[in-house]
């Protein structure tokens, strides 16, 4: 079963007196455990598509199904819980909370859940494991402004994984990083994808990064121009 399914999805934005048709009838499926790249040039609709999958934006038309649940018409509270429980986010500009240190930033999504939290000791161990995993054990008490871009993105990856989501969405995760660091970050995501079977969906316009994906969805002007699975 597809973990993500988009059926004839449209998204229109008002822009002054005109309207921008950012996504124009997109349909595709993503299988659990995929490492998916949504590729395309600027303005192709990849960030909008990612936002729709991430349920932080709503489709003007069409259906977005996450784990078989149609998100259309769901109340904000339900959608927010779905985001918390099923999705993890990695942003282009990291979006770490500046007042919190590495450990606290990673812990933060755990504080937001509506359900009962797990045992504190288990949570602590899990966060420590993630910090080790992203190679920031020596930086756990540092604030975000004391970290490099690559380190911040590693924190963001750990934060996205802390709630053990089935899907992690990354919008241009390497755009603000140099190529070496960007590659390291992608490799890290790929390793986690393999080890934890977490579905990663990332948008990028960088051709070299696109090639790392095993499912590539290419967009242009809000339309899918290519939707291919790559066997590696």
């Amino acid at each position: 079963m597809a973990i993500v399914e988009l059926k004839n999805v449209h998204k229109k934005y008002p822009l002054g007196k005109t309207e921008v048709h950012a996504v124009q009838g997109v349909s595709f499926e993503i299988t659990k455990g995929d490492f998916v790249s949504i590729a395309g040039p600027s303005g192709s609709g990849k960030s909008t598509t990612l936002n729709l999958i991430g349920c932080i934006d709503t489709a003007t038309e069409g259906d977005v199904l996450i784990n078989g649940i149609n998100t259309k018409g769901l109340k904000d509270k339900v959608i927010t819980n779905l985001r918390h429980d099923t999705l993890g986010f990695i942003f282009q500009s990291f979006n770490l909370i500046p007042v919190l240190n590495v450990y606290e930033n990673i812990e933060f999504p755990l504080l937001l859940g509506s359900g009962k939290r797990g045992k504190r000791a288990e949570e602590r161990d899990w966060i420590d494991h993630l910090i080790e995993e992203v190679g920031l054990a020596d930086w756990r008490n540092h604030k975000s402004n004391e970290l490099s871009g690559g380190q911040r993105q590693r924190v963001a990856i750990a934060r996205a994984l802390v709630t053990k989501p089935e899907i992690v969405l990354a919008d241009e995760p390497t755009a603000n990083l140099d190529s070496k660091t960007g590659e390291d970050i992608l490799n890290l995501m790929k390793r986690i994808n393999r080890e934890q079977n977490t579905t990663f969906i990332f948008s990028t316009h960088d051709a070299t990064i696109v090639e790392m994906a095993d499912h590539i969805i290419r967009l242009k002007d809000g339309l899918i121009v290519k939707n291919e699975r790559v066997s590696r």
């Binding site: 932080i56 904000d76 985001r83 986010f89 709630t163």
Partner: peptide
């Protein structure tokens, strides 16, 4: 505003 957006994306209710 970005921080609020991130927190909402991560699952913080209104």
């Amino acid at each position: 505003v970005k921080e609020i957006g991130s927190m909402r994306a991560m699952g913080m209710q209104m």
